[in-house]
Design a protein around this nucleic acid. Structure first.
Lengths: 110, 110
DNA sequence: CGTAAACATCAAATCACGTTGATGCGCTGC
DNA sequence: GCAGCGCATCAACGTGATTTGATGTTTACG
């Protein structure tokens, strides 16, 4: 499991992409399926178009969403593998093995 | 499943907490178990103490980590339920049901 | 063609967030 | 009690991210 620096950076970027109010809501909306930008704009309560476009680009650059053009419309949807990757990171927490502080009281830690 | 606004805000806060370089690394480190601040400081390559303290507070306020005092040392560890909650959000993506654009070509979307 | 819709891009202004260095607080050992 | 360690808090500052409004691009339609 070579948690290379590059991969870690990419993963961090994915989290940064999702960790913003507008983008977070976009992800929630896309969870139910593909949407075109104007639909998203409506669902978000009429956000400025350039603003939404800016955020969608962030999500796309991070690999969280992908887009597909159909006529004049561009449809955005989530990338399952990316979300799975993020879930995996949050799952790497393998505690509950009787973990207690490395050093006890009178030993100190550093 | 009442995805109340309050809960959504709290969840967003958790993502914002993790989506920062230093805090991201702290979470990675804590994945292997409890650590005191000075240990973390060392693991992070000698980060300024106040800086680390600032980030730990962010993580704590978001409910991502919890702290425990033992003598002069304070030990930090991850909160499994919080990570599970975040994983759940990323898992709410239930596509792959033959999902295709709501409207087809000549129908338009909005 | 000419126009309009749906998005993307860009530059300027604004704002949020993290960093730094100083200071405060609780605990321990002398 | 006093000094020192481990950690938290605070205010000033700087940087990078987001917003806004204008402009550009692609596609569709008459």
């Amino acid at each position: 499991m070579p948690d290379s620096a590059l991969e870690a950076d990419a993963l961090l970027q994915r989290f940064q992409a999702v960790a913003e109010e507008t983008r977070f809501r976009v992800v929630q909306i896309l969870a139910s399926g593909e949407r075109c930008v104007c639909d998203l704009q409506a669902d978000l309560g009429g956000a400025a178009q350039s603003r939404l476009s800016f955020h969608l680009k962030k999500l796309k650059d991070a690999g969280v969403v992908c887009d597909r053009r159909d006529g004049r419309w561009v449809y955005y949807s989530l990338v399952p593998e990316t979300l799975e990757e993020m879930r995996a990171f949050l799952g790497e927490v393998k505690p509950r093995e009787g973990w207690l502080p490395v050093m006890r009281s009178d030993e100190g830690c550093c």
